[in-house]
Write a protein that binds this DNA or RNA. Structure first.
Lengths: 179, 179
DNA sequence: AAAATATGTCAATATGGCTGACTTAAAAAT
DNA sequence: ATTTTTAAGTCAGCCATATTGACATATTTT
């Protein structure tokens, strides 16, 4: 009990600095999601719909499994959200030509409009935060933020050309909910 | 509809780069909270308890109102969490000497142990992410992360000596849930 | 004495996760 | 050709965390 303060996990960084970063992450994420949440609420959707619409927009033709692998939630959780997005015509499905079990997901025009509205807000916030910062600072930001992510998902940012993994089951890892 | 892609909020940053950062924030925050969540689950607590314990540990003697101001949630939401933390002896209250309406919050030894366990995990993750990065990168990371936070809460990081605002009602703003 | 403040509580509602169990259809493996 | 695996979907229930509105109590301020 007495020596708890002295665990000093990684000797190179002071506890105070690390705690500041912990708090920054909390406040930043809270504020980052606040305005989109408000917009969504007005049309009867929630943050889960935002994430779904975002990643479908980002990866047109992604499969349900691919989406689950990004979001790291259960299909039952996604299902509620996805069904609502489909029934309200933000998203549509198309059976894959090569494998008729797969249903590829796409945004409708309505979905695109919503995605743009939401993402425009977050882009603006990030862009404003980066304003006046030099390349070193921005790269430092991106590097450290990426390094906070579990190894298993870092490939999404390391190689800008290798980003067609999302529906490649051989590259995904079946330990969702296990680890 | 056709010109949606060209809104280009802030001309200085490319949409692709901004989207990458949006995604990094999502993945980083998801993974940042995952392991503490797991630890908490084992003892019947949740992320809300973590936040509460964290900020009481960080600001010993903080009032309920001060905590609400940090967390930006309703007192009814905090109440459940706080009552559980008190009844399970992670937190105790002390009536303020100067104003007997105020109840100052402190961690018990048990609460301190929990807070240390949870925070050690997150500190380690941040420290590892910062390993090998130079001061410029780390400062860039902190600067931009701070700039993402709404102005109203940026004082928490700008002036390292001015941090006794948490129980000062004159510095808080009564627009929770309004804005 | 009245108003504002700090805290607490009851009740109802919404969201977004979770687990378990089970189905259907299609593809892959034996 | 049969079996197994994969992809997707569904039903039902549970839990955690947030919300709103309406009050209640004690204390301090005006």
């Amino acid at each position: 009990m007495a020596d708890l303060k002295m665990q000093s996990v990684s000797e190179d960084f002071k506890e105070e600095e690390l705690r500041q970063i912990i708090e920054m992450l909390f406040f930043a994420y809270r504020d980052f999601t606040k305005e989109p949440d408000k917009m969504l609420e007005e049309i009867g959707l929630g943050r889960a719909h935002h994430r779904t619409v975002y990643f479908i927009g980002r990866n047109p033709g992604i499969t349900v499994t691919g989406l689950l692998d990004i979001l790291k939630i259960r299909k039952q959780s996604l299902s509620r959200v996805l069904n609502q997005l489909i029934s309200e015509a933000y998203v549509f499905q198309k059976i894959a030509a090569d494998d008729r079990r797969k249903k590829l997901l796409f945004l409708t025009d309505k979905g695109l409009v919503l995605e743009q509205r939401l993402t425009a807000n977050q882009r603006k916030r990030i862009a404003n935060a980066c304003l006046g910062k030099n390349e070193h600072a921005i790269n430092g930001f991106k590097d450290i933020l990426t390094a906070i992510i579990n190894d298993i998902d870092q490939w999404r940012f390391s190689s800008p050309s290798t980003n067609s993994h999302f529906n490649d089951r051989t590259s995904t890892h079946e330990n969702r909910g296990v680890e």
